[in-house]
């Protein structure tokens, strides 16, 4: 009898222990390396690396497309992101605005294709690459305000949190998980409340009791978490 009970207690204890360990280590990790999603075929293969990629120091005129980019800020084209919850796609007008003056590439097949759409006044049917479920409402504006405008992070870094290293891609590919736990893992982290140079960010976001700023024990910087109620993203 005793032996039997001992065994069952041991078994149950083992089960509970391993279960809770598994649950605890299930915490999704914030992927840093590229874990590329499927390649999406777009109507025009837009070369992000050429537009946003780093300049090649050996090629000051930027003539060799295979070598370097032009370091165009993401927000130069994706202007909606800082003004709206949805990032949208820049209007065709934007592409043409520059390209009508760049004669050197005027006859490249992709540009020819681009002008075909423009002449027909037809919108380009881009495919969505980062397509969240319809009941998820990510707010681009808020994140850009928080990290680019207020915390002075470089745009490409801030966008890259979720979009990955787009400047090295041709057609953008999804590189982060974008699952809810992945989002939440970042919101559960303490982010500095002050910008790098010590500029205080307006007393926004941290009124909520849940997210009152705390002084981090590690580096003494005032930090706070992102909002955590469901109705921020699902409504």
């Amino acid at each position: 009898m005793h032996r039997f009970l001992r065994l069952s207690f041991m078994l149950m204890g083992l089960l509970v222990a391993s279960g809770s360990y598994a649950a605890d280590t299930q915490k999704p990790t914030l992927t840093t390396e590229d874990d590329l999603g499927p390649q999406v075929t777009q109507p025009i293969e837009f070369p992000h690396y050429r537009h946003a990629g780093l300049k090649n120091p050996d090629d000051p005129t930027n003539s060799d497309p295979s070598k370097g980019g032009m370091e165009i800020d993401c927000q130069y084209c994706h202007t909606y992101a800082r003004r709206s919850a949805v990032a949208g796609i820049p209007p065709l007008q934007k592409c043409i605005g520059c390209h009508q003056n760049i004669e050197s590439v005027r006859n490249k097949p992709r540009i020819v294709e681009l002008f075909k759409y423009w002449d027909a006044k037809k919108a380009i049917p881009w495919k969505k690459v980062h397509d969240l479920p319809d009941f998820v409402r990510f707010n681009h504006e808020r994140h850009i305000k928080r990290f680019v405008e207020q915390q002075n992070r470089p745009t490409q870094e801030a966008c890259g949190y979720c979009h990955g290293d787009v400047k090295s891609m041709t057609v953008a590919r999804r590189s982060k998980s974008l699952a809810m736990g992945w989002c939440a893992s970042c919101h559960e982290k303490n982010h500095p409340v002050t910008a790098e140079g010590g500029t205080p960010i307006g007393n926004q976001a941290y009124w909520y009791k849940f997210q009152k700023p705390v002084v981090a024990s590690s580096d003494g910087v005032v930090k706070a978490q992102g909002p955590n109620d469901c109705w921020h993203c699902h409504k």
């Binding site: 999603g37 499927p38 999406v40 075929t41 949208g88 796609i89 820049p90 209007p91 065709l92 007008q93 759409y117 423009w118 006044k121 037809k122 919108a123 380009i124 049917p125 881009w126 495919k127 969505k128 690459v129 980062h130 397509d131 969240l132 479920p133 319809d134 009941f135 590919r173 999804r174 974008l178 699952a179």
Partner: peptide, 22 residues
């Protein structure tokens, strides 16, 4: 339409409609 289509993270299934001029 929001809410009644896509229920998971997708890639390249839906088209995002952009303006020609805006």
């Amino acid at each position: 339409l929001s809410g009644c289509g896509n229920t998971s993270i997708e890639n390249g299934k839906e088209t995002v409609v952009s303006y020609v001029e805006a």
